[in-house]
Amino acid sequence: MSSAPLLTSILTIVAGIIFFFLSFLFEWVERKAVARIQKRVGPYFTGPGGIFQPFVDFLKLLSKTEAISKGTELLFYRASPIIGVTLLTYGFLHLPFLSQSPVLNFNGDLLVIFIVFAFTCLSYLMAGLSLRTPFTVVGTGRLIVQYSLYELIFLSSFALIFFQAGSATISDIVRYQMINRPLVLYQPIGFIVAVFSLLAKLEKPPFDLPHAKQEVAAGWMSELSGRTLAYMRLIGNMDYLFSISLIVTLFLGGGSGPFASQIIVLWPIYFLIKALAIALVLSYIEGVAVRVRSILLPMRLGIPLTSLLVVQAVILAIWRMGLW
């Protein structure tokens, strides 16, 4: 019994370090894939195939001096990266990445995800509004509208999973998928809606309105520099990896696959392959899409996605009724 806290803390550190470095790997995959789709090469000279480029970017920003403007609210400016990085790493510990059982788990820990996303958004807002210039105010305003619209859709698709699996505990949902089939086969519409709204949540093209370059400079990131920019970019990468891992866990059955129950090593490998597949799908949309007009954001995309979710819920309800 006494070794359990020690094992948990070791696993926490290992998972934290893996999460930190994987987030850079995923940025590299994304940049490389988008470049390939646009017939470019992408990062090439730094490391084999440019694989160290995101990490070198991070180190460079850490070593640069910070240009802090007069009037910056330093409490917000300093606290925002800490909140974001800490909570996203904490959230990742609740996902079954290393093995079937997550490092940390308790009854109903799907709700932790809601808190993690809320605080990630809060850290963006704090960083954006720490200095109120026209660019940051417009950028943060757009961020709030986009986030509140699409995170609602994203998290609603998880509500459908809760209805089907009958549990709000992540490890129970994974077990349900291992006993039956991955939930993407039961809820394909919900899966598509979740992946699509993920793009809006992560501010990737076509939903990069909060930092639309030609309109609002760098949006809410305009006034960040040096260390803070490095960590806010890291939060972006971590958010990307965390959201993808979440979809893999909830829709694709985590790292389950052939022989995964016999050979323990296969679990993280399958998990990573599934996560990379989703990252490539997202990169493809990013590479070919152009930015949506801000008026189309709620009307043409928000309403159809919501109605698709309603359709999925109705189908699910009918299916459950038929089963009873």
Binding site: R31, R40, V41, P43, F45, T46, G50, F135, A218, S225
Partner: peptide, 12 residues
Amino acid sequence: ERLGAVLTASPK
């Protein structure tokens, strides 16, 4: 971008 160059939106 082969060299890691990115066109940024803000001088900071």
